[in-house]
Amino acid sequence: MAGPKDLDPSSSPRAMLGAELRHARERKGISQEQLGQLLFVSGSFIGQLESGTRRMQWEYARMLDEALGTDGFFQRNCGAAAKSKYEEPFEEAAEAEAQATAIREYAPLLIPGLLQTPAYARAANRAYDPTVPEETVEEWTEGRMERIRLLDHPTKPLLWTVLDEASLRRETGGRKVMAEALHHISGLARRNRVIMQVLPLGAGAHAAMQGAVKLMEFTDAPPLVYFEGVRTGRLEDDPATVAQLRFTFDLLVASALSREKSLVLIEELAQDYAHEEHP
């Protein structure tokens, strides 16, 4: 019997590679959990590879070929599925984000990527590395704007964001840029495209003081949580970890202003920035 054909790079390589993985696993007669044990990963991780939510790394491809007897198919094709238009180390999270049906995010220090304007993104990218060429900053910014296009759909994905008031008061790019950024956020909220709340400075200590929270849900794969730090980021699928971070997000929502009061605060700050007043 002929083996599977190599993937066509012009198609959706990751989705096709995942479909081939599911086919090979079922032909072998083993479950996702059983295959995961052979690779020393969880069954949910295998499910995410099969759905195309997670990228297949070469080392996993080698182990899959050995476990499933696929004659090097996954090693030959994981390179095509690994190509990304996003910068490392955030590319896997950005690609998972594009497939999510629901995204819940708390941003403590800056306006999150999906809510940024080009000018705000450009200022943030320049701050990440003041020494890189302008072309690199533009490339990063274009990648960020490409991610934002997923909001072009009127209802999907569900985006629920809790913004820390500190991120709204940090002048990133100057007052004109901030005014535009906050007007953009209020516009999304008024069009009912996002659920947006502000965690006020007056809330005091809260459940996520140590960092950002980002949770993603999918139609045919287990949920993920994304941890991001300075020049680093990683996805986690451990159910207990995901459940704990979901609880953390729920606590943040409980401490945040209502949607109506959040919108009032954002629009007042936008007006302050636009009129050169000190918020």
Rank of each mutant, 00 (worst) to 15 (best):
V177W: 07
Q99I: 07
L265C: 04
K5A: 11
P133M: 07
A166Y: 12
R169N: 00
G18L: 06
E105Y: 01
A61D: 00
H206K: 03
G29L: 12
L39T: 06
A254W: 03
L265P: 11
F247Y: 13
D65M: 07
F40N: 09
V198P: 12
E142H: 14
E171Q: 05
L38C: 15
E276K: 08
L168H: 13
P13Y: 05
H206D: 00
E92V: 15
R54A: 07
E217S: 13
P133L: 10
P239W: 05
R246G: 03
D8P: 06
A243V: 04
N192C: 11
E97W: 09
P157R: 06
L110F: 15
N192A: 14
A93Y: 06
R22H: 04
V137S: 02
A100V: 06
H278M: 05
D129P: 10
D65L: 11
D129S: 08
E20A: 05
Q99T: 04
Y273T: 15
D6R: 15
D220V: 11
D6Y: 12
L188K: 08
R104H: 04
V242G: 07
A93L: 11
N192Q: 08
L263K: 11
E228F: 13
I266W: 01
S11I: 14
R234G: 15
T232M: 07
G3S: 03
L158Y: 00
R246I: 03
A274P: 14
R191C: 07
A207G: 01
A205T: 10
A127C: 12
T232D: 07
E135V: 04
G29S: 00
A102Q: 15
A256K: 10
R246S: 03
G233M: 01
